[in-house]
Design a protein around this nucleic acid. Structure first.
Lengths: 124, 124
DNA sequence: TAAAAAGTAGTAATGATTACTACTTTTGAG
DNA sequence: CTCAAAAGTAGTAATCATTACTACTTTTTA
């Protein structure tokens, strides 16, 4: 379905090689060092297809940008409303509420979204 | 800080009186039945201020719209990639992975974001 | 190895959201 | 009460992250 392309490989490698949550524009800037004439549209298209195929995650925190995460292992994203940081938190089978004690972060609200197929759509 | 306005009250009531996750445009259409000349910009501004004050939640599932939730109690949002439905799931102190059995939903990936203040910003 | 399928660069267009302006409502001190 | 400052609103214009489009290139496969 999805053919190989060096652009998509470079985008995936870039995301897997860093532990932050870059935006499309930030991925673009980074990949340009390897593929100088890559197009921003190509970055957007490949990020979307990598999210679609489940190879990366899309993280939205309400700052006006879509963020991308090459780490699919389950973890929480602590978003500081003050500085805008997105901090990874691994709760490893503990209850979600236990994040209260994580590294001094003061949680206020949380939103969890699980992506998949609902009962009806799974039947079809 | 935030003065009273009948527009914001109507928006908050609308969100608390329904159990889905409407977009700004859907809230606008609904509130227009009560306040016919309310402005779409007013809806956006008040939704943002209600999120800011923690009275409602913003839920993003990657469909290009910001969704709003008047129910602040902790629950998961199951987003069907096929029909686009956003289904509430109350796991009530259970482990996140247990959502696998929820009502026939087939989970594929999940993204949890916790909003609050990081250690550094809490100091200041 | 050639043609169909998929992908790309570069640019134009889209549209959800935000900003702006003149006007109205709310608030609270006098 | 009352009136001015502060906050909010309607209506419209502007923004800008993201998507669509087109001519061209790369990948796939028979």
């Amino acid at each position: 379905m999805a053919n190989y392309s060096k652009q998509r490989e470079a985008i995936l490698n870039e995301l897997r090689g860093r532990c932050d949550h870059p935006t499309a524009a930030q991925v673009y800037e980074a990949v340009r060092k390897t593929i100088p004439n890559i197009s921003l549209g190509t970055v957007y298209r490949n990020l979307a297809s990598l999210v679609e195929s489940g190879e990366i995650l899309s993280v939205t925190v309400g700052d006006g940008y879509e963020h991308f995460d090459g780490d699919k292992s389950f973890h929480l994203h602590l978003h500081c409303k003050c500085c805008g940081a997105i901090i990874d938190s691994r709760v490893e089978d503990k209850k979600i509420k236990s994040i209260a004690q994580f590294d001094g972060f003061i949680p206020e609200t949380s939103v969890c979204v699980v992506y998949g197929l609902c009962k009806n759509c799974n039947k079809q």
